[in-house]
């Protein structure tokens, strides 16, 4: 049971949601946007998330959009992960989100909720970072569409009261060769030791990570090293991991040393899959 009370509002447009948020803030309240709400409920139960008002955005049409139009895939932020997975319009995204939580939970967890969540894995963002996806954000001064990479620093950095409404990926990214793997310490369900997604565009490999550090990330310097084909794969990987953000995660899933060991081998798998060569694991 959630040990505190909050007001509940259901918005039918993004403008209504944003206005409601501003109004509540002016009243000194602490509102949150509510899509799947799984973190608000589970972390709220332990008082790790607190709110005085939830604004349900599932009734906002643009947040439920899923369509290919004008050479771009438009994905509403309030879409449940299973809906995206089953539609399979972006296979790399489908495969990556199919490993998040479990199937029933994915009926509730939403794309935008996973991206903006407190639990730091946020694996749905990984394919979007390497596919140059745009985000549509509604705020008090209207809507803006900008590259996700331009506002992503460990998480989407939104202004107070801004609402992520859509993610838009150009269709020429949807069919690119890709690789996605989630390595767990054990079992088939649960948090990752590491998750790595990669795709190849114009002969260059792009790669993004979760579980390695306390936030998901993409690093152009890592990609430069991995794509330096003058070197052999092991040397490329050794150089690449010098550019990992610090510190490497150290928790019950694995030590930093173990994570790096698994990461090196996983990067070899990435190169093998996307370069079409066979590389030996050391």
């Amino acid at each position: 049971m959630i040990p505190y009370d909050f007001a509940y509002f259901k918005a039918s447009t993004a403008e209504e949601a944003v206005e409601l948020y501003q109004s509540l803030r002016e009243q000194g309240k602490q509102p949150v946007y509510y899509a799947g709400g799984t973190e608000i409920i589970t972390l709220g139960r332990m008082k790790e998330v607190y709110t005085e008002a939830v604004i349900d955005i599932k009734g906002i049409t643009e947040c439920q959009t899923l369509q290919l139009e004008q050479n771009q895939l438009v994905m509403g932020a309030a879409l449940p992960l299973t809906k995206l997975q089953e539609a399979n319009l972006f296979p790399l995204l489908s495969q990556t989100i199919s490993e998040i939580a479990d199937h029933t939970a994915r009926n509730k967890i939403t794309l935008g909720g996973n991206l903006c969540g407190n639990i730091y894995y946020r694996e749905a963002v990984l394919p979007l970072l390497i596919a140059d996806t745009d985000v549509v954000i509604a705020g008090k001064s209207g809507r803006r569409r900008i590259p996700l990479n331009s506002i992503f620093d460990e998480r989407p950095c939104l202004e107070d009261g801004e609402l992520l409404t859509q993610l838009i990926t150009q269709s020429d990214y949807l069919g690119l060769p890709y690789y996605s793997v989630k390595k767990r310490r054990q079992w088939d369900v649960g948090y990752p030791l590491i998750t790595v997604t990669a795709l190849k565009k114009e002969g260059k490999i792009r790669v993004s990570f979760s579980g390695v550090c306390l936030f998901p990330f993409r690093s152009e310097r890592i990609e430069e090293c991995l794509n330096d084909t003058r070197l052999n794969p092991d040397d490329r990987i050794e150089r690449a991991i010098q550019h990992l953000p610090k510190p490497i995660s150290n928790d019950v899933e694995g030590s930093p040393e173990y994570r790096l060991f698994v990461l090196k081998n996983t990067l070899l798998d990435v190169l093998q899959a996307l370069e079409g060569e066979t590389y030996a694991h050391n």
Binding site: I41, T82, K108
Partner: peptide
Amino acid sequence: CLNGDCGTCTIDVDGNPMKSCLMLAVE
């Protein structure tokens, strides 16, 4: 578990299995 992990609270909502510990009644 009341945390969305065990599935013992699963019900059907509009044809989809849902964990009722992960839903607010008002929604």
